[in-house]
Write a protein that binds this DNA or RNA. Structure first.
Lengths: 214, 214
DNA sequence: AATTCGATAATTTTCGAAAATCTGACATGG
DNA sequence: CCATGTCAGATTTTCGAAAATTATCGAATT
């Protein structure tokens, strides 16, 4: 892996996880010291992240972490619902046995990690992402999967700070995931879409109250 | 405008218009000579284009123009239908008087340019793009507009070579645009969606036969 | 007191060269 | 004849410094 790719992965992670505050400037000198590399690979990474809307750039004034607002969250969430319900429908229509197996496997891996008391939070997030990706993976559209990844990263930026602010949850997220998987495996597209939609709307409600609290 | 931004605009145009063949390597030395700048701004532009899927990159093996295939075109077209019908629906529901006026203006400008015998093809394409953007512009979603721009560029790569190969058209595209605008201005969302869908499906049919001929 | 101007510092942007890596040809051994 | 290793050339990637631009601060002016 080249330095530029490492810079891209690290920066993306740090932005999504909130290590850099929204709107804070991303100065090359600071980043260079933080990640131990020159300007070139950093600029490459920043340009890619700009195209993904995680950072903004102004000519000759450098880069900043993109702003965060309730309106932008709502926008990203609505786009997600549009993209993911369509992708899920396609996936259910087109997925084969191997796809079903991958959904089962992803759910299993997610649950296993969720039940570990000593669990690594990073690993849990990775598996959560993997489960949601597995649901859509058979949709057959590179563009929809691309949009899914973008929107997932964009909304993930809100999930983390909001959830800590909102306190303990009353939801049984594990059960929601299980219900979605069941509907998918029985190829009930309408039910699966409805459950996925509800799943996101519930998360959105939590995040809204979390942002209001923060 | 910085050199990197110029490089981005130029490269994007040259790729979309087909000045570089799909899959052809984009060597830094060549590009440096062609555009009269060093490697740094070119790499920045290429990285942004990579995030937009117009170019692909392989570690330590440089950049290539993304491939072109009927399957990828169909994928982009279907994504476009999903995104644009939704954006159009929202636009019709939310657009105000100023938006209506901008649609009328964009259609007028497009028609004016289309009727000029000595017309600049570049200008016509710009206005065509502007008209379709104006239709959706009141949707209120940055993400949907972002996806629209990406998909427009992706499909534009197919429109140009296919149309020249397919020969003269029997369609009255001007009338199709007019009908869409009429439906939009009368706020008939269902009709507008249907007309937009038909408009794209007809273009898609032309492109399919054009690709088959080529 | 507020504003403008100029000099200095900080920062981004760009270049040119060095380092790292890949490609293809050629020789060598099985 | 085929496989394998090696070397030179081509290409990408990275660095460090130079160039260009913006930001900051104090003095002069209104």
């Amino acid at each position: 892996m080249t330095l530029a790719e490492k810079a891209y992965v690290s920066l993306r992670k740090d932005i999504v996880e909130g290590s850099f505050a929204p709107e804070s400037p991303l100065r090359l000198a600071d980043l260079s010291e933080r990640y131990g590399m020159g300007f070139s690979p950093l600029r490459e990474a920043l340009n890619r992240l700009q195209a993904e809307r995680l950072v903004t750039a102004e000519s000759l004034r450098g880069f900043r972490v993109s702003s965060r607002s309730l309106a932008e969250f709502e926008d990203a969430l609505n786009a997600r619902l549009l993209i993911e319900t369509e992708a899920l429908r396609l996936s259910i229509a087109r997925g084969d046995d191997a796809w079903e197996a991958s959904v089962v496997a992803a759910l299993y891996a997610l649950r296993r990690q969720a039940r570990r008391e000593d669990g690594d939070v990073d690993e849990l997030k990775t598996r959560h992402h993997a489960f949601h990706r597995a649901l859509l993976a058979a949709c057959g559209s590179d563009w929809l999967m691309d949009f899914f990844e973008r929107l997932y990263a964009a909304t993930e930026r809100y999930r983390i700070p909001a959830l800590t602010a909102a306190g303990p949850q009353k939801r049984d997220i594990d059960a929601e995931h299980g219900a979605i998987a069941d509907a998918v495996l029985s190829r009930d597209a309408a039910l699966a879409e409805q459950l996925l939609r509800d799943h996101y709307l519930r998360t959105a409600a939590t995040i809204r109250s979390g942002m209001a609290a923060a």
